[in-house]
Amino acid sequence: MTTRVLAAETTNFLLPNATFFVEFALFLIVLFVLYRYVVPPLSRALDERQDMVRKQVQDKELAARTLQEARERYESELADARAEAASIRDEARADAARVRTDLREQADREVERIQRQGAEQLAAHRAQTLTQLRTELDGLSTRLAERVIGQSLSDDRRRRATVDRFLAELEHTPAGRGED
């Protein structure tokens, strides 16, 4: 009981006593120590770590971007190379076609030239033969006919006409048939 009475006399829970000032001073000391020596290095470390993390994230993004760019460049170059290869192939194909056409044309021309040459030779032969015949056939046929009818066929004019007609007929005969 005495304690309770004493307590009631000496202390009221809600009223501070001189301890207040000591406590205030103690709290201010703690505050000062933390404010001066603890929080600044801690904040600095926090900031630095945040910077470091941010930098790492940036580095990572940069690396990812570089990789992406390299991949894109590789792919674009690959596509270019493919396109170039295709164009070279197409060109080669076109060249081949052109060479083939050229060669064929050349061969065609050669064939034509040979044919023409042959035809010309043939025509020359024919003309030569005709001239020869014209000179030889006249005397020969006359002699043959005189032997058959036993008289001279002196009428030169008629004889020449007969030979001419024959030769003309011969000339009108197509060349192909004459060759056979």
Binding site: F13, L14, L15, P16, N17, T19, F20, F21, V22, E23, F24, F27
Partner: peptide, 8 residues
């Protein structure tokens, strides 16, 4: 103790 709570 209110002596600490009050100063704070």
């Amino acid at each position: 103790d209110v002596n600490l709570a009050y100063p704070m």
